[in-house]
């Protein structure tokens, strides 16, 4: 056993009232890997990510992230853990009352880094995601969806995190912008030497960025393994998803 896994999900169960979302999800994400979690809409992907971040508590089972239990019950410990994580939200979740650079350098500004130094770091991070310095002083509302994603990504990596989580990073983007984001995920992975978890239903994106792929269906993982194994999996559920067919064992939810 070389290194402790970056993320360990042990038998997670979670229900909202009568709606069961997670039914025994188990997953290990090794340090330094890019783990893609694939799943259809409503398979529990986003809920799983919220459990990893401690925004939700599972009813049963344990989450371990970088050796800690993420829980909002201990805000100080939780903040210390979050300082080591970066999260890219599906809708970017930029603070609309702040300019782009204030968004990127948010944590630095709150922790009283001088504003000049914070802005310098923000510009550097914007450069890393391929954005020019001239966007730094405008507000998020003036940006396109793809640019917002990149700003949000710059914000997520501002604290040089050892774990970066992506919630559907390419959803809602045109194919070219989506591929730019894929390239960024790969590039940041190399530069930050971090562990990445990408949640998506975009097969193209998954095959491009993943080291390993896990397939989430109805709240548990059906398969987990290297990309090549996944591509050639004979599991009928996986086959239907990979080939994108309407007919098969996965029925559309109604």
């Amino acid at each position: 056993m070389a290194q402790a896994p970056a993320i360990l999900l042990d038998n997670l169960h979670l229900a909202f009232g009568s709606k069961v979302v997670l039914r025994g999800a188990n997953l290990q994400v090794a340090t330094g890997q890019t783990q893609v979690i694939l799943g259809g809409s409503g398979s529990g992907k986003s809920v799983l990510l919220r459990c990893v971040l401690g925004l939700l508590q599972p009813d049963q089972g344990q989450v371990t992230v970088l050796g800690h239990r993420p829980t909002l019950q201990q805000p100080t410990e939780h903040a210390a853990l979050m300082a080591k994580c970066g999260m890219l939200f599906q809708n970017s979740a930029l603070f609309d009352s702040m300019t782009v650079w204030e968004n990127v350098a948010f944590t630095l500004i709150q922790q009283r880094t001088t504003l000049a130094a914070a802005k310098k770091i923000a510009l550097e991070k914007l450069g890393m995601v391929g954005l020019a310095a001239r966007v730094a002083d405008i507000y998020p509302a003036e940006l396109s969806g793809g640019m917002k994603k990149r700003v949000a990504l710059a914000r997520a990596i501002c604290g040089n995190p050892s774990l970066v989580l992506y919630d559907e990073p390419t959803t809602g983007l045109d194919p070219i912008t989506a591929d730019v984001i894929n390239d960024l995920i790969l590039k940041l992975q190399k530069e930050l030497r971090c562990t990445s978890v990408v949640i998506t239903h975009d097969m193209h994106s998954a095959f491009k960025v993943a080291d390993r792929i896990a397939f989430l269906y109805e709240g548990r993982f059906l398969t987990e393994g290297p990309v090549a194994t996944f591509k050639n999996s004979s599991n009928p559920y996986v086959r239907q998803f990979v080939e994108g067919r309407a007919d098969g064992p996965i029925a559309l939810q109604n």
């Binding site: 971040l53 903040a79 979050m82 944590t107 709150q110 914000r155």
Partner: peptide, 18 residues
């Protein structure tokens, strides 16, 4: 609803205080 409060949490900032 735009997840800005969740974003605050993931940026190691306590939303109750902030």
């Amino acid at each position: 609803v735009t997840e800005q409060i969740d974003a605050l949490v993931t940026l190691a900032t306590n939303p109750y205080r902030y």
